[in-house]
Design a binder for these strands. Structure first.
Lengths: 153, 153
DNA sequence: CCTGAAATGGTTTGTAG
DNA sequence: CTACAAACCATTTCAGG
């Protein structure tokens, strides 16, 4: 799936991932090209899945979601059936913004956004009642120093 | 900064955060309203900082960024001067997609996207040469189970 | 605050180099 | 593959309920 991207493609991605609201003319000017080539490349990259649809990032505080936890999970169960249930549970829960399966001692890490510590506990209780886990450590974020969708291109 | 958002505002945010490429007509239809009120609310929420500018999410694999690490950092230094240097270093590094200051034993967590393990090591070496840290644990992601900007609204 | 329409400007398509 | 132009469609503004 690693489409061949030339320098112009990369410049376009750089412009779009910082602000997708720009007009084609603006982007063309920034990347040193013209409207049609930019449009053709954008179209191609969208079809190839190189970039997703434009999204707006909503400020969690504005919605009262003031607590962010990173959750480290160890489990003793590694059967496919258990894993399938666990993954389904994570995907179904909107509080879970990110979930990764890890290499090493810790099996999973989650990023969870909730209103407060109490809401986290409700999430936690609901999760462990759905699937058995061996050990859970929650790390509470005090300050979001950086949060960037932008990849180094 | 917690602006009062009514039900219609929330519906609009829900629609926009899943796909900001929709036309105002489509959104208006989905939320059961009309073009002008939707437009006025979008405008107001943008000005209030409730939502950021539209962004496209780029597929890391398409750029050859195939490794994702979560980095747990402990430090013994907690002076403001050290902290300022550390924060500046994190913000300056494009590999760092997220950085949080934590409560508890672990002081910081980072999410780092790089091409491979070797690129991570280069990042790591560069970071610890800039600022002194006590202990660093890197968790390598094997599989991105879920990654969603969408907040539960 | 909503409706509906008018004007502006950007996107998308098509033709030609 | 690029430049240019024409048609289309969305956004933005504005008058009226």
């Amino acid at each position: 799936m690693a489409a061949r991207l030339d320098d112009l493609d990369r410049k376009i991605l750089r412009a779009l991932q910082s602000d997708a609201g720009q007009s084609l003319d603006e982007i063309a000017r920034k990347v040193g090209s013209s409207k049609t080539p930019v449009w053709n490349r954008v179209r191609k990259m969208r079809e190839a899945g190189v970039m997703g649809p434009p999204q707006v990032v909503v400020d969690p505080d504005a919605l009262g979601l003031e607590a962010c936890f990173f959750v480290l999970i160890r489990t003793s169960e590694h059967e496919t059936e258990w894993q399938a249930r666990f993954l389904a549970a994570l995907k179904a829960r909107p509080e879970v913004q990110e979930a990764h399966r890890l290499a090493g001692e810790i099996d999973y890490i989650l990023k969870v956004r909730v209103a407060n510590a109490r809401a986290y506990d409700e999430f936690y209780q609901a999760l462990i009642s759905e699937v058995r886990v061996f050990n859970v450590t929650a790390l509470l974020s005090m300050e979001e120093i950086k949060s960037s969708l932008a990849l180094p291109i």
